[in-house]
Simulated assay, not measured.
Amino acid sequence: MCLDLAASMCGSTVNKSEAIRVAGVNKKVYTNGLKAFESMLDLQGDVSIKEMGVQFGCTGAVTLAEECLQSYIKEYNNKSCAEMDFGTSLFQAASLCAACRQLKIKVDRVKLKEVCSVKHKTFDRLVTELEKHAEKIQGAKKVVKQKRSKTLLDEIERQIEGMYIFI
């Protein structure tokens, strides 16, 4: 894992399957260990919600995810005085997942969980909390659609249809 981190810092690559075999662990343990080392050494790259949206093919949920996370941050700051780093991949991925659920966009939750490498319960609990904020935001955005007024083009089409009836 250390060799993998050193290689990535130097811009080189390591054969992951070979590194996993040499480490003597399965892929999940290796990935979680690698993420833990990155976190301890503060080497992990911050991934934005927009980047995750592009990566997972759900760019339509990005704006809602960002609004949802901002709402959650406001509520959290009102409740607690403790400092929390909301820029981590956990909060980014969870808010994107909550937004996708709210908008009924399919996204691979397993891969989203892998990005932040946390336990399923932790991720699911945070997604549930963020879904509440997404519902509030979506509820506020829902507006009754008004019937559009007739335009000149609509009136011309109506006249033309009326002409065909008499012919």
Results as ranks from 00 to 15, higher is better:
116 C>N: 00
91 F>L: 01
125 R>A: 14
143 V>W: 13
158 R>S: 06
51 E>C: 04
75 E>P: 08
154 D>H: 11
144 V>T: 14
5 L>K: 02
50 K>P: 04
159 Q>V: 02
12 S>A: 09
45 G>W: 03
75 E>T: 13
162 G>V: 01
29 V>S: 09
142 K>S: 12
92 Q>A: 11
7 A>P: 05
52 M>F: 03
70 Q>M: 08
41 L>W: 13
161 E>Y: 03
147 K>L: 12
33 G>E: 10
99 A>P: 03
96 L>P: 00
108 D>S: 04
51 E>G: 07
29 V>W: 01
159 Q>W: 01
49 I>R: 00
7 A>M: 15
13 T>W: 02
49 I>T: 02
11 G>T: 04
31 T>S: 13
124 D>T: 11
128 T>Y: 08
88 T>C: 02
59 T>H: 08
65 A>L: 04
1 M>G: 06
17 S>F: 08
4 D>N: 01
118 V>S: 03
138 Q>G: 12
53 G>E: 07
47 V>Q: 03
108 D>V: 03
146 Q>Y: 12
45 G>L: 05
150 K>M: 10
69 L>W: 04
79 K>S: 13
59 T>V: 13
120 H>T: 15
39 S>V: 08
62 V>A: 03
54 V>Q: 15
103 L>Q: 12
155 E>F: 03
131 E>Q: 13
110 V>W: 05
128 T>E: 14
76 Y>M: 10
101 R>M: 09
64 L>C: 01
139 G>R: 06
69 L>F: 07
94 A>S: 15
118 V>R: 12
32 N>F: 12
38 E>A: 07
70 Q>I: 02
105 I>L: 08
113 K>Y: 03
35 K>S: 09
70 Q>E: 15
60 G>P: 03
119 K>Q: 15
120 H>Y: 10
11 G>I: 06
48 S>M: 01
127 V>T: 05
22 V>E: 08
88 T>W: 03
112 L>K: 11
140 A>D: 10
153 L>H: 06
23 A>Y: 04
81 C>F: 14
